[in-house]
């Protein structure tokens, strides 16, 4: 193994180690978003009952609450897709880490010189595999970024729904105070999700090649 190749192997393994930590952090954020989206679902159910009690004065609020339930389900589906990509990324990074250790040990052989003819074919094949895994990880990174952008778009819609619910709450007559409180909670939670996704967008994982 040449010095340049050895450096590549070392750098690949070290970058994979850093990626694994970043993926763990992304996964923690995804879990947080999923937890919050469950909360929206329960809150929306309660809001639907409240709107029914309020009758015709809260028809619009009822429709929006239902839309927020749908939003909560879509967000969870979206997070489930992200989870799948995270799982595939962890798998890929683990292979890169394991191969990195093996490449280092095989690289030691090449330093001896005498056995180089024996190992050169294996090293060449493994270099090809290393590139293939790096490419797969880069693809996953791009897919994750795209899925994250989709989630962000969805949350923008959730934000519009929550704000519309706030407006509708004002027409709730004697229920206006309760409806306003519920719609403000919706808004707060959607903002929390937006914040979580925004921080994911800036994860150094997406800046890696």
């Amino acid at each position: 193994m040449s010095t340049a190749t050895a450096l590549t192997v070392g750098a690949t393994a070290s970058a994979a180690g850093a990626d694994l930590l970043r993926i763990v952090r992304i996964n923690e954020q995804i879990k947080r978003v999923v937890g919050v989206s469950f909360k929206i679902n329960i809150m929306a159910l309660n809001a639907i009952f409240l709107a029914k009690r309020a009758g015709t004065a809260a028809l619009g609020f009822g429709v929006l609450s239902n839309e927020l339930r749908v939003f909560s389900q879509e967000l969870r589906d979206c997070m489930s897709g992200l989870n799948g990509l995270i799982h595939a990324s962890v798998n890929e990074v683990s292979i890169i880490l394991r191969n990195g250790r093996q490449d280092r040990l095989l690289g030691e052989l090449a330093k001896g010189g005498a056995v180089l003819p024996l190992v050169s074919g294996v090293l060449e094949r493994r270099a090809g595999e290393r590139s293939a895994h790096a490419k797969r990880l880069a693809d996953l990174r791009r897919q994750l970024k795209r899925a994250l952008e989709d989630a962000f778009q969805l949350v923008e819609l959730g934000g519009v729904l929550a704000k519309s619910a706030k407006i509708e709450a004002a027409y709730g007559q004697s229920f206006a105070a309760s409806l306003t409180q519920v719609s403000s909670e919706f808004d707060g939670i959607v903002e929390e999700i937006r914040g979580a996704l925004e921080s994911l967008r800036h994860s150094p994982f997406f800046a890696s090649k």
Partner: peptide, 19 residues
């Protein structure tokens, strides 16, 4: 063990074709 593989492989190869 994996960590001593390079040393074992090199020594063995000097006497025998590992393939």
């Amino acid at each position: 063990g994996a960590e001593i593989f390079p040393a074992v492989f090199s020594a063995l190869s000097a006497e025998f074709d590992p393939s």
